[in-house]
Design a protein around this nucleic acid. Structure first.
Lengths: 186, 186
DNA sequence: TGGCGCGGAGAACGGTCGTTCTCTACGATA
DNA sequence: TATCGTAGAGAACGACCGTTCTCCGCGCCA
């Protein structure tokens, strides 16, 4: 196993464990065991738990947004598809809400790096939604993107706590209202 | 100091510390120090950290919802006042998002009690919003309450991560659209 | 073949956690 | 006043944490 594969296995293990049990709820030993990477190698790839956490969040951000964008691109490339993708995500086994919201709640006050990662992620999602609303015939796509982002965040939190993917449907219906209302009335 | 005051001081300390640093980020010793209650007495009031966490969440739920309801009752008793209250909350120093979302993210997978507390809280908020939408002339107050709840949750998460109370304004504007659209058009 | 460097297994270290135990001082009662 | 129950201060305990160190065995070059 070379350095590159070790890094990948560590990140896979870290993502699974941190997302399920929270960062402070998982010891480095668990990640070592799940990844099959030796302790020495693990600390060669990531010199501290903090650095592993940051790498976990960064990779998760990229993958999450790519998954969303890929789905939306193949489903009409319009804002409502975002909420259809959300529903499929909510229905996945092990869904536990937004990794960034969870990490921020757990560590945000004590870890500026985690707080910054969460903020970057949300800004990136907002920017993505902005590209979608920008293609619409609406007078204020920025404002609409922010409103859609609010619905997305709310749906994620509620779906997690209630273990109910139906939150996506509620948010989608609200988004539909916002979208039709945003279009200039003739 | 009698048992009752000790309990209150412990809950005050627990709420401040757990909310700021997360449950796992705060040791019992910190709560003992902040509350000024002796270790023995602390374990008389709460036989374990878990029981203290549950009591913390329960008291926070009651106070949070009472604070919201009181504000709304004195500001027209209509749904949009909810978002005005949110803005004042977001602007408070030390605001760190929803205590229940944070606790759920940190412990939900490992603590059924915390998961249940979070669910009860969200359901209670939904029920409260339902009383507000029930007084409106709308065909589906349940649906509207769920949509407003989604906006509330989204606003809380975004305001926390971005440290920006303006999330309340965005959510309020979206709520306004949903409210006017929900009214039957003549 | 013989030395050598590298990687893996896991012991070890210092620290912290939740919880319990010990010891001491005090205040009420007979 | 002598005794007893109680409460406080904090030591102690066992477990676990993140991280480092030790040791051993295996593959490579002379």
């Amino acid at each position: 196993m070379d350095q590159q594969e070790a890094t990948a296995r560590l990140l896979d293990a870290a993502e699974a464990e941190f997302y399920e049990h929270g960062v402070r709820g998982v010891g480095m030993d668990v990640i070592r065991g799940r990844s099959g990477v030796s302790l020495k190698r693990m600390y060669q790839c990531f010199p501290s738990k903090d650095s592993l956490v940051e790498a976990y969040l960064e990779r998760r951000d990229e993958r999450w947004r790519r998954s969303l964008a890929d789905y939306v691109a193949t489903h009409g490339d319009e804002p409502l598809a975002v909420f259809d993708w959300l529903r499929t995500w909510f229905a996945e086994p092990g869904f536990r809400g937004c990794a960034f919201v969870n990490s921020f709640g757990e560590l945000g006050a004590d870890s500026p790096a985690v707080a910054a990662a969460a903020r970057r992620h949300k800004d990136a999602v907002r920017d993505y939604l902005r590209t979608l609303t920008g293609r619409l015939d609406v007078p204020d796509p920025d404002r609409l993107a922010e409103q859609l982002l609010t619905l997305v965040e709310g749906a994620i939190a509620l779906a997690a706590i209630r273990a109910d993917p139906g939150a996506a449907r509620t948010a989608r219906a609200a988004a539909e209202t916002l979208l039709t209302t945003a279009r200039p009335h003739p």
